[in-house]
Simulated assay, not measured.
Amino acid sequence: MDEDRNQVRLLLVHAHPDDETITTGGTIAHYAQAGAEVTVLTCSLGEEGEVIGDMWARLVADEADQLGGYRILELHRALDILGAQPPRFLGGAGRWRDSGMAGTPSAANPRAFVNADRDEALTAMLAVIRSVRPDVVVGYDPEGGYGHPDHQQVHSLVTEAFDIAGSDRYPAAGAPWTPQKFYWTVTGAHQLRDGIAAISEVPEGWRMPEDGELPSVPEDVVTTSLDVRGVFDLKRDALRAHATQVTVAPSGVEYALSNNIAQPILDVEQYVLVRGARGNDVDEAGRETDLFAGILGYDFDH
């Protein structure tokens, strides 16, 4: 065991810049402040995204096609605010392109992430896991949260990579390493309902979400809830860093993407434990309160 193995490590795998802050920004800041080494692996540059406002509007894919490079800058800024390690990109920045939504021309691009050679992408994923050597890995559920093909591709790749990282398969990806826990980032239906209900004022030009419009999972699926109120300001500031993609409301407790649908900035981030031992520290709902709970050999004061 390394001399520095008293420091726990967290790896979060996301599809595009801003995903890491929207769903797991509080988790990143929480564990970074607690002394964990937190790494975010991003699998594309989000080149197909829309842009909020006029300043950077012509960076989009069908004009200058420079949005991906700018979003690298936004990701650097956000992760610096959250206290994470510098960003890492699957296969190197720009290796695979944002696929856009299923059925769009961007999804047919040979460079699109959904069209990646499976062995190459899996080798790249394993190389990051084996070099970072995380105790805990976070990815997406099979739906990828809201059905984006890149999120679903992340789910598929990170699940397989987690399961074989400790084996001797793909030796070119480095020495074996076995992470101890694997989670999906999710939003419980009740949490989303209550967050929407708490929205008291919708900024001009925004609208409230319709029933079922925002993704969530049934309450009985959620295994883990992490209270991130102590780092809420950092999460909000990191959302602001993704200014081409996210607008934070004047209230400071809601945000919207380019569709101007109001969404709550959640102060509890929820997960599904998929691999590993469930921790004994639970809340009144019986859910874990620490992603590192149950990992033997560590006394991590969070």
Rank of each mutant, 00 (worst) to 15 (best):
D2E: 15
R5E: 15
N6F: 12
R9K: 15
L11M: 05
L12F: 00
P17C: 07
D19C: 06
D19T: 04
E20S: 03
E20K: 03
T21G: 02
G25V: 03
G25P: 04
G25R: 04
A29Q: 08
A34H: 14
A34S: 11
T39Y: 13
V40H: 08
T42W: 10
T42Y: 09
C43T: 12
C43I: 01
S44D: 03
S44T: 15
G46T: 01
E47V: 02
I52L: 11
G53K: 08
D54E: 15
A57C: 12
L59S: 10
A61S: 06
D62Q: 14
E63I: 08
A64Y: 04
L67E: 03
G69Q: 09
L73W: 07
L75C: 15
L75N: 06
H76C: 07
D80E: 15
I81L: 11
I81F: 00
I81H: 02
L82K: 13
A84D: 13
Q85I: 01
Q85C: 14
Q85S: 15
P87Q: 12
G94H: 12
G94Q: 04
D98F: 11
G100N: 11
S106I: 01
A107D: 14
R111H: 08
A112W: 03
V114F: 04
V114N: 09
A116I: 03
A116G: 11
D117V: 07
D117W: 07
R118G: 01
E120M: 13
T123M: 10
M125Q: 07
S131F: 00
V136G: 02
V136T: 07
V137C: 01
V138F: 02
V138M: 09
Y140A: 02
Y140P: 01
D141P: 03
G144T: 09
G145L: 05
H148V: 00
H155A: 13
H155V: 02
H155I: 13
S156Y: 00
E160M: 13
D163C: 08
D168P: 00
A172L: 11
A173D: 11
A175E: 14
A175T: 14
A175M: 04
W177R: 13
T178R: 15
P179C: 09
W184L: 01
T185A: 12
T187Q: 06
G195T: 02
A198V: 06
I199R: 14
I199F: 04
E201P: 03
P203S: 14
W206N: 05
M208K: 15
E210C: 03
D211Y: 08
E213I: 02
P215I: 09
V217G: 01
V217A: 11
D220C: 12
V222C: 03
S225L: 04
V228S: 06
R229V: 01
R229G: 12
G230P: 08
F232W: 15
F232Y: 13
D233P: 03
K235E: 14
D237I: 10
L239K: 07
A241Y: 00
H242A: 02
E254K: 05
A256W: 06
S258G: 12
Q263D: 01
D267Y: 00
V272A: 11
L273G: 05
R278K: 10
D283C: 00
E284G: 07
A285C: 12
G286L: 07
R287C: 05
T289N: 10
F292L: 09
A293D: 15
G294F: 03
L296S: 14
G297I: 02
Y298S: 11
Y298N: 04
D299W: 12
D301G: 04
D301N: 14
D301Q: 13
